[in-house]
Computed example of a mutant assay.
Amino acid sequence: MSTQTLVSGPPAAATGRARPLASELRRLAHRRLVVLLVLLGVLAVVAAMVAVFATHSADASGARAEAQRQAQEIAAANATDASCTDPDACYAPTADDLFEDPRFTAGSLVDVAMVVGGGAALLAVLVGGTAMGADLASRAMVTLLSWEPRRLRFLATRYTAVALASLAIGVLLQAITLGLGALTVQLRGTWDVGRRVWPPLLWLELRTLLLVVLAGLAAAGLTTLVRHTGGLLGVLFGYTVLVETIVNIVGTERGWTRWLVSQNLAAVLLPGGNTIYVRYDETGAGHDVTIHLSHLQGFAYLAALTAAALLVGSLVLRRRDL
């Protein structure tokens, strides 16, 4: 006769501690659009670095010899040209003028990382938008709020998941960029650029990662307001085409361009910040009127816009009838 041991108490699943943040991260990781966007981002970075590798060469001596040959050909052609009796009448470039270094220098990693950082921020915008828009448009938000009826706590968890996902995307793309870039420098370039490379490069990497997180959060906050990812894209397109264009046309001399998102993005990404020309000195005396936006100023402005989007979106969703 078999015996069975009865275990009293609730099942294990009912006694487990809830982990809403882990659930949100898993939900993001299983979204097909998010996976597709990340794969496209990785493929784009890899393709770009392969193109960089293919268009550079370590044969600097061969390139210099080719420049010397071209200079000699031009000089010989000028010597047989009757119209070049006056030395100033025909331009005769030297080998140094024609030489183009085919090597990929370590200093170029900064430029590449800057471009990839901007692309990662754009990718984070799409991920942040779909993280909120998909559930709002499909009304799955109603079901989710039945598990966590405190809307502000739910939004805080969702926004945290978006920030972590955006940070992971930025780290992944920049790691691929630095790895393939360092390989290109080693095989088809040079580390000798006459200046330190890693301090400014690592500082740029930190700035781009923070920018990617802000981009994802700002997109999530705006999508909470417009309730759809398509609405977010429409708002961004309208801002870029209308607001940026109009302010650049009518507000340049008034200094309004300093408040544009594009100018503050440039302040974050560009080494040394962004210098905006308000008014050029037509006399040529060098008295141009400029506004300089530092890294900190750019970050502060973008962080303020992001906080405003999150705050307004949270307050609206708290009172909105879903």
Rank of each mutant, 00 (worst) to 15 (best):
L204M: 06
R139A: 07
R139E: 10
G273C: 01
G273N: 01
A267E: 09
V125E: 13
A18W: 09
L145W: 03
N274I: 05
A71S: 14
A267F: 10
A303Q: 13
L311V: 15
S262A: 12
I246Y: 08
E100I: 06
Q174E: 12
R188C: 01
T240W: 14
A161G: 09
R254C: 03
S2H: 11
T208F: 02
R279A: 06
V127T: 13
R158A: 14
L311C: 11
A18T: 09
P11F: 00
A165F: 05
G255V: 01
E24Q: 13
T55N: 07
T252P: 13
L145N: 08
S61M: 08
R258F: 11
A18R: 13
H30I: 11
N248V: 03
D281L: 05
V112M: 04
V45E: 01
G234S: 07
S262Y: 04
L173G: 07
L322D: 10
C90S: 03
A267I: 06
N274E: 14
R319I: 09
D97Y: 05
T5L: 14
T275E: 15
G298Q: 12
G9I: 02
R103V: 05
L311I: 15
T240P: 06
L36K: 01
N78W: 05
A48W: 06
Q70H: 01
Y239F: 10
T184C: 09
R319K: 12
V312R: 03
A165E: 10
L214I: 02
G119N: 10
V38P: 03
H30T: 15
A165N: 06
G194P: 07
R207E: 11
T80R: 15
V226P: 07
S314N: 08
A175D: 07
S314K: 07
R17T: 11
L310F: 03
A303R: 12
L310Q: 07
A175N: 05
I246F: 06
E24P: 03
A220R: 05
G189N: 04
L302G: 09
R139N: 08
A29V: 10
L322P: 15
L270S: 10
R17G: 05
A89Y: 03
T223L: 04
D281M: 02
V243N: 04
A65I: 00
G118L: 07
A113Y: 00
V268G: 03
V243D: 08
G9D: 11
V38N: 02
I249Y: 13
Q297G: 09
L322V: 15
T143D: 05
R32D: 09
N248E: 14
Q4H: 14
L33P: 02
L98M: 02
F237A: 15
G272S: 03
R64I: 02
T130M: 01
S108N: 13
D101R: 00
G230T: 10
L210W: 05
V312F: 02
G129W: 02
P149Q: 03
V52F: 04
L122N: 10
L164A: 08
V110Y: 15
